[in-house]
Amino acid sequence: MTDILVLGAGYTGIAAAIRAAVRTRRHGGRVTLVNASPRFTERLRLHQTAAGERLADHSIDEVIAGTGIECVLGLVTRLDPVRREVTVGERVLGYDKLIYALGSVTDMSVPGVAEHAYDYDDHDQAVRLASRLRGLDKGLDEGPDKARDKGTVVVAGGGLTGVESAAELAEAHPGLRVVLLTRGRPGAMMGAKARAHLDRALRRLGVEVRDGAVVTKVLPDAVELAGGERIPSDATLWTAGTRGLPLPEQAGLTVDSRGRVVVDSALRSVSHPDVYAVGDAAAVSQPFGVMHGTCQGGVPTGLHAADALAAELRGRTPRAFRFGYVHQPVSLGRRDAVIQFTHPDDTPRRWYLAGRWAVRYKETVSSSPMPSYRLLKRGLVPVALFRLSAAFK
């Protein structure tokens, strides 16, 4: 038997685990999936959870049922690539091959973020933010002074996650003031027409955009900017950057400046080839540069790593991973969206979608992956699981 250990049960980790179980079953593969929580979290939709929407709840056992994969619940505290061991709680798990899919976490290098800001590192954080916003709404309804200031929500970070969150929260809580802080212009990676639609949507929803804003400190009731200005905040959501967990670097794996595992063309660690790294946890080089973390690129890396591992077990040379981006889909509340189509290097093409057709497109590409996982269990690789991502092999 070949013991294959998959760390992390997000979109990428589950896709890798199911694919590895299917592809290695006849060659002695035995797959174990490790995750801290029994719940499968749809991170693409955490901004909806934060806005108070109730989404379908899926357990990991439900997702992997029928695959033969063993699920071990617990926090990974140590990785030893020399002994080929992983410590999970009080258990020590050995492996022959490992797929590292623990993703990334919020970059909390700015003072006060860890103590005073909400983030999307797990589902519970989004639920707590939703509860806080409901409390602010209730306070507005019951407040004796109707002329008093609105409650303020600050979203720090003008990337796609920050834009989606600001729009979603503003639409769901029209009585609250929503401020989006960003160093550059929101949607800066888009073409001019798509960016103009995004700007109009944020204005329509009442989102106050502060570009050129550099946050230096998060306080319990405010956000401090470079220059000393303070913006009062009843709830601060931090979406300004991510980095890899410290686990790989502590284990001696080669990582980049953001803590991501540096991999070769087959997605194996350049320092420890028995370890594959995928998704946000990996620094994957392509002709256009290092990929940035998205589900669009993450799931294909998970599928490719499983295929490469299966090829190794059969004594074959794994193929090089090839990938190109196709789109930048952004929801702007539940009734609006904009889709910027891109070249493989993620630079914008002329084409874009906006409005109701963009909403339909966005809901299709970010819909629940459960139907796709069911097909994957049967040995199929549905296009939907690639998120229309133009992964090339």
Rank of each mutant, 00 (worst) to 15 (best):
V263W: 03
P38N: 07
A354P: 00
L181M: 05
K393Y: 13
S131L: 08
A240F: 02
A226H: 10
V88Q: 03
E53R: 14
A226C: 05
R83L: 13
A310C: 09
Y325T: 00
R387L: 11
D264Y: 10
T152S: 06
D96P: 02
L102C: 12
F40R: 08
L160W: 03
L79D: 05
F392A: 10
P371S: 11
R43I: 03
R23V: 05
M1W: 01
S285W: 03
M190L: 13
D345R: 06
A311C: 06
G29M: 08
G241Y: 03
L140M: 15
P369H: 11
L376E: 09
P232V: 11
A196K: 12
A192E: 13
K377W: 08
V278D: 01
D141Q: 14
E171W: 03
G244L: 05
R378P: 00
D234M: 08
L44D: 04
W351H: 11
G228E: 08
A56H: 13
E229D: 15
H327T: 01
G279E: 09
R387C: 03
V72I: 15
P38K: 04
A308H: 09
T317D: 14
A51N: 01
T87M: 11
E62Y: 01
P220K: 02
I4V: 14
V88E: 01
E42F: 13
L73R: 14
R30G: 02
L375E: 15
Q125I: 01
H292D: 05
H27G: 00
T49E: 03
F321A: 03
G259H: 09
S271N: 03
V255Q: 04
S265D: 15
V270R: 12
M189I: 04
L376I: 15
P186C: 07
A50F: 11
V113R: 10
P186Q: 06
P382W: 01
H27W: 12
D280C: 00
V290L: 10
S59E: 13
G187A: 10
V88N: 02
W238C: 08
Y100D: 05
I60Q: 02
D274Q: 12
G228H: 05
T152E: 08
R200T: 08
A283K: 01
A126I: 09
L198H: 12
V88H: 06
F386W: 15
D234Q: 08
T67A: 01
W238E: 12
Y95M: 05
G74A: 05
P144M: 10
Q340D: 09
P232W: 05
G66M: 07
R314P: 00
P273V: 00
A192G: 03
V255F: 07
G103K: 03
D80P: 14
V290N: 02
F321I: 04
P220Q: 04
R268I: 05
D221L: 00
M190Y: 00
Q340I: 08
M291V: 15
P287T: 09
G89S: 11
D211Y: 00
I18F: 07
E164T: 04
F323N: 06
G135E: 15
G94F: 08
V163G: 03
